[in-house]
């Protein structure tokens, strides 16, 4: 179980060591101490390993993650798990802007709050936020599920494609072409399974509302040109 002191080892050496891990590696439990808000920690990992970071990080933590499970015992800066392909990223604290941006797969769990543009351009990633999310979240979200136990800020789901948004609290305002939609049994199932995977108890899928595309914008029809405002 390698323990890396980031202050002593340096970022490049750490990421290089993580990149050298292959499919059948024996070094499956990693611990990183003294992160001190560093950027780009554990980016581009492509191995089924567990990485725990003891502290808060800066930008793009676990970017492009594939297969790994990355747990951050602290908060993260902008772009956590951006472009994640698979695997899991768990943030025990808060996440800054564009968490999970353009993520293709995997699960991102934020146990605190996420800031603005959470899930922007998501392409299949599942994001579960225990707290609130900021404005412009799920902007142009194409696929995947965003589950928010708290509140959402302004312009939720602006220009959304087919991603599913589930918010338990209030939504300050909806973005262009985003509307509330009925919760059907299959949606309760999706929310229930994601809450379970995120380890969130005490909230029920029935408490969530679903939001998604009105489909008047991305199937562009010139009659709706004024929807671009």
């Amino acid at each position: 179980m390698p323990t890396i002191d980031l202050a002593a080892t340096g970022l490049r050496a750490l990421n290089q060591a993580l990149h050298q891990l292959g499919e059948g590696t024996n070094e499956t439990q990693w611990e990183i101490i003294n992160p001190r808000g560093s950027h780009a920690v554990a980016v581009g990992v492509n191995a089924p390993v567990d990485i725990t970071i003891k502290g808060s990080l800066g930008y793009y933590c676990a970017g492009m993650n594939r297969q790994a499970k990355v747990t951050i015992e602290g908060s993260v800066g902008p772009g956590v798990a951006e472009n994640m392909m698979s695997g899991e990223v768990v943030v025990k604290g808060d996440a800054s802007q564009y968490a999970g941006a353009t993520g293709h797969g995997g699960l991102l769990v934020i146990e605190g709050n996420a800031s603005s543009r959470c899930g922007i351009s998501m392409k299949g990633i599942d994001i579960v936020v225990k707290g609130n999310i900021g404005h412009m979240s799920a902007f142009m979200a194409q696929a995947g599920n965003l589950v928010v136990c708290g509140d959402a800020g302004d312009a939720l789901g602006d220009s959304i494609y087919e991603a599913r948004l589930f918010v338990r609290g209030s939504v300050k305002s909806l973005g262009a072409d985003c509307i509330e939609k009925p919760m059907r049994p299959e949606h309760l199932d999706i929310v229930g399974k994601l809450l379970e995977r995120a380890g969130i108890a005490g909230v029920k899928p029935e408490e969530f509302k679903r939001y998604g595309s009105a489909r008047k914008l991305y199937n562009f029809n010139v009659d709706h040109a004024d929807a671009y405002g």
């Binding site: 001190r36 808000g37 560093s38 800066g58 930008y59 908060s75 800066g77």
Partner: peptide, 8 residues
């Protein structure tokens, strides 16, 4: 600050 790293 503009990032947490500045406050560390």
């Amino acid at each position: 600050g503009s990032e947490y790293r500045a406050l560390v």
